[in-house]
Write a protein that binds this DNA or RNA. Structure first.
Length: 430
RNA sequence: GGAGAGGUGGCCGAGUCGGCCGAAGGCAGCCGCCUGCUAAGCGGUUACAGGGGCAAAACCUCUGUCCCGGGUUCGAAUCCCGGCCUCUCCGCCA
């Protein structure tokens, strides 16, 4: 959610910032609603002040043994008027919030303009794709041939976009997870947290996922609809929510958290897209990085977060590139975001394996995550950042495709072998 | 799931038959004084949000907030209803 005050004070700048991402047309209605809201607040507060003063004198009169009946009757009427004003105010507030929730975050000044993927900017590349000497196969072929990935059985018990991992593949999933968590906790200074995988509607809304992305999220069925829980589409949701409605002290910032959770996504509207293999699943594992910082720290912390995500692929010795999103290609909550794209020889292209975003105060404002400045004691909103460090399923794909050999076996990156009892190669079990 | 108890400021804790309670007292923090010794004493001070005034900061003022949401009342931390959470006992359970 954007700062209402900013919209009020400089609506043109806000509209300009939103030009590439949509929502600019909503600025006008925010302004109108805000104006009527303030009118209503003013009037009802004046009446309340009047009423409070009168109640005071009524109390005093009663204690003196007088009968302030006339005054009481008058205040009864004032009370009715206040009630009416508040009903109207509630309506306007709800509408204002509804509109505000539709507006995406403002891009950081360093974000390139543009409306589509084509205007994203590649910032750097690392590693050289292997020369295979044969045509590298996509992971789903490799995995099925090795008896490690089982799409048919997953579809039988659930539906498409689910996968069963057998034996060494299941182990590899766990090894990757463990490796990433160890790297981030031991070397990058993150604190590991374990969090709920189902959260309430308020938490989803504070994050920015509701109401905009309701159709992308799995939801539990409750007799009382208002108490439904949502399966997290990413650990970003519960981890960022950790400090909801808290005031953190500046010296404890930045907070750096890492969490491992499964992620659940409906993938509505992606029919036909990435249907093969386990690129796009309803359920996948992810190691997520979250930071809570002061406004001054956040952009530096974004840079180091991307580096932390990249480091995973460097240690796995898998090529990748880093892309800076243009304004129009960013997620709803992001002010600036980088994708790390891993090289997938089976597809012959780079595919997103991590997305690191600085949401600035967009989420913090909704969730009321604040900090008290070390000097001066001022309270202000924190900035929140999140990034995958990394998507485990896609990392597994990358390991399979990049490590494949002529005979269809797969060489395991050396950094993972300690987590696999020293296993060097995945081969077809005999 | 059943029965009971409870949710007050950074923490502890008091709030009578609803008014003078944004809330006693203690602790902690901050500022100052005093003191010359690893401490104590004295005085003051310390919540958050929103609106208005101000070019703005300081500041002034109003409103709201004693778990949350409704209600009763001229007036509610105090009464009523609903919800959430915590604790104890029982049941069930990985």
């Amino acid at each position: 959610m954007l700062d209402l005050r900013l919209i009020r004070e400089d609506p043109e700048a806000v509209a300009r910032g939103l030009a590439d991402r949509g929502g600019a047309e909503l600025v006008k209605s925010v302004l109108d609603l805000d104006a009527s809201r303030r009118r209503l607040v003013k009037e009802s507060e004046e009446l309340k002040a009047l009423k409070n003063r009168a109640s005071e004198t009524i109390g005093q009169a009663k204690r003196r043994g007088e009968d302030p009946a006339a005054e009481m009757a008058r205040m009864r009427e004032v009370g009715e008027r206040i009630k009416a004003l508040e009903a109207e105010l509630q309506r306007v507030d709800a509408e204002l919030e509804r509109v505000l929730l539709q507006i995406p975050n403002l891009p950081d000044p360093s974000v390139p303009p543009g409306t589509t993927e084509a205007q994203n900017v590649e910032v750097r590349r690392w590693g050289t794709p292997r020369a295979f000497g044969f045509i590298p196969r996509p992971h789903e072929e490799l995995g099925e041939a090795l008896g490690l990935l089982d799409f048919a059985r997953a579809a039988k018990m659930a539906k498409s976009r689910f996968t069963v991992l057998w034996g060494a593949a299941a182990r590899l999933e766990r090894a990757l997870t463990q490796f990433m968590l160890d790297l981030h906790t031991r070397e990058h200074g993150y604190t590991e947290v374990w969090v709920p995988h189902l959260v309430n509607a308020a938490t989803m809304q504070n994050n920015g996922l509701l109401p905009k992305f309701e159709e992308q999220i799995f939801k539990t069925l409750e007799a009382d609809e208002g108490r439904a829980l949502y399966m997290i589409p990413t650990a970003e949701v519960p981890v960022t929510a950790l400090h909801t409605a808290e005031i953190l002290s500046e010296p404890t910032l930045p907070r750096r958290y890492v969490a491992f959770t499964p992620c659940y996504r409906r993938e509505a509207g992606t029919y036909g897209k990435d249907m093969k293999g386990m690129i796009r699943q309803h359920q996948f594992d992810k190691v997520e990085l979250v930071k809570i910082t002061t406004p001054a720290q956040s952009n530096d912390e974004l840079e180091s977060m991307v580096r932390n995500a990249e480091e995973v692929l460097r240690r796995l010795e898998i090529p990748y590139r880093v892309v800076l999103h243009c304004a129009g290609d960013m997620g709803f909550q992001a002010a600036k975001s980088y994708d790390v794209e891993v090289w997938l020889p089976g597809q012959g292209k780079f595919r997103e394996i991590s997305s690191c975003s600085n949401c600035e105060a967009f989420q913090a404002r909704r969730a009321e995550i604040r900090y008290r400045a070390a000097s001066g004691g001022k309270v202000d909103y924190c900035h929140t950042l999140n990034g995958s460090g990394l998507a485990v399923g896609r990392a597994l794909i990358a390991v399979l495709e990049n490590g494949q050999e002529t005979d269809g076996s797969v060489t395991i990156p050396s950094v993972l072998r300690p987590y696999m009892d020293g296993l060097v190669r995945l081969t077809r079990p005999t």
